[in-house]
Design a protein around this nucleic acid. Structure first.
Lengths: 122, 122
DNA sequence: CGGAATCCTCGTGGATACTG
DNA sequence: CAGTATCCACGAGGATTCCG
């Protein structure tokens, strides 16, 4: 199992990675990392997300059993989202990825610069 | 720094995650995990990728200094791609994510089923 | 406040054809 | 073989509006 066969498109692990790989899921999970949050709180934390995308992302996560949705019927409705155990278990790998990103930021950005600079030759 | 501030859209770590988060990058890096590969080999390994997307993804990875591109001027041109040290360092986090995906496949799929099933109520 | 529904645009990405 | 270039379709996703 050392080799890398399983990347045919019907591979179920790819379906999962597809979901995780979308632009917002990672960020929303991150926004929930330190406890339950209200809808609008998440919206504020994840800068640039539209209400539609947030709803959609949360629905997906709920559907995959990664977050729970709790409705409190008050005068202004209150909805809290919280990571499930599954969801929390995803934090580790996600953190790892983020740390990698931070750690390798400067080399990568430097590489991008170099790439642009070397455009002059031809 | 325990809290989760850094998700404003101009955060550089998010720019990196954006790149990684696209559908193909992860798969292409995976395809290169056990050594250098030719263009067509990668195309074959990453099922469903178009030639355009493969080129584009590889360019992006090259630009970020995660893969190297080696052209061998033979009768039929030969181009090999290989992970750089940076690229290889990404494998760890990616593996972690993949393992998570495999490990949590059944719960997630079960959750999806449950979600669908519970549609009957209303 | 949280969300559903509608509309509309803009970019991703596939198919095809051509080049070195 | 490994691209580049062009065209085009489709759907993600933003803005807006309305509802419980």
């Amino acid at each position: 199992m050392t080799a890398w066969d399983p990347y045919v498109s019907d591979c179920p692990s790819r379906r999962l990675l597809d979901r995780i790989g979308d632009r917002w899921t990672v960020l929303v999970v991150g926004a929930l990392s330190d406890g339950p949050r209200r809808f609008s709180e998440i919206a504020r934390r994840v800068d640039g997300i539209s209400q539609k995308m947030l709803t959609q992302t949360l629905r997906g996560l709920e559907q995959d059993g990664l977050v729970t949705r709790t409705v409190t019927a008050a005068v202004p409705v209150r909805v809290d989202y919280e990571l499930t155990d599954s969801g929390r278990s995803l934090q580790g790998p996600l953190r790892a990825l983020e740390e990698w990103a931070i750690e390798h930021m400067s080399p990568v950005l430097a590489a991008r610069e170099r790439f642009v600079t070397s455009t002059s030759s031809s």
